[in-house]
Design a protein around this nucleic acid. Structure first.
Length: 226
DNA sequence: ATGACGATTTACT
DNA sequence: GTAAATCGTCATA
């Protein structure tokens, strides 16, 4: 599927933002809520990345909440505060990027209050804009031989597709110009609440009882076409 | 200084 | 289904 064009007169801002897909930016107040509420809210929103003069964007379809010092699966469990997870203690709307498995990056949106280490892991998007650039970053070529569904269908895939690494750890999603989150534009099918499932989080089997908690939000695959 | 372990992905059986 | 890749991080010493 080719990238969508900006469209008719008036649908594109001076910066080239296609308003039919990308609505108003989320504000600090939008982020300064609990991780559970933000994880649910972010489903359907649009993650926008500007890198190397190109705009990339996708609709958020999978999130996980990491709910604080009591959450055994969280990097901040027990109040741990280290150089790696320092950004979890920052202001709501801060981006927390970490490196794991010796090769992968994952990104979180910090929420709650300052010094309260709560965040939402962005796990997957439906690619909307810049699919060829995403494919280049993911596979080294823009060829369509790879399926669109493999571009951003996991937390580390998403980071790779969008060129996210620790160099933008701490980025301010409220004011930043290289990355932000927007409400869905008028031209995007809204995601229905009934199409969103809650399940246990992925890859945290050693988190005891917390592993079973339904803190993952995911759009039913049938709604995404895969 | 050392060692165990990842909020994962990919390829392969 | 299983396993390898690959190295920063952190608790322990």
């Amino acid at each position: 599927m080719p990238d969508r064009k900006p469209g008719r007169r008036g649908t594109s801002s001076p910066l080239g933002v296609p308003r039919d897909l990308i609505g108003p930016r989320l504000t600090h107040a939008d982020f300064a809520i609990s991780a559970e509420r933000l994880a649910a809210t972010l489903i359907g929103c649009v993650l926008v990345r500007v890198i190397d003069g190109e705009m990339l964007a996708g609709q958020i379809i999978e999130t996980e909440a990491y709910v604080g010092v009591k959450d055994r699966a969280s990097h901040a469990y027990g109040g741990r505060r280290t150089p790696r997870n320092e950004m979890m203690y920052a202001r709501a709307g801060t981006l927390y990027v970490y490196f794991t498995y010796g090769m992968h990056h994952c990104m979180n949106v910090v929420c709650g209050e300052v010094d309260e280490p709560v965040a939402v892991l962005l796990r997957a998007t439906r690619p909307l804009i810049g699919l060829e650039a995403m494919a280049r970053r993911r596979f080294g070529s823009a060829e369509a031989s790879r399926r669109e569904r493999d571009l951003c269908s996991g937390p580390a895939k998403l980071c790779q597709a969008l060129g996210v690494d620790r160099t933008i750890n701490g980025l301010d999603l409220v004011r930043g110009e290289s990355m932000w989150i927007a409400h869905p534009g008028t031209g995007l099918e809204p995601i229905q609440r009934r199409d969103v499932r809650r399940t246990p989080r992925i890859g945290i089997d050693s988190a005891g009882a917390w592993a079973a908690r339904p803190l993952r939000w995911v759009v039913d695959a049938r709604e995404i076409g895969r």
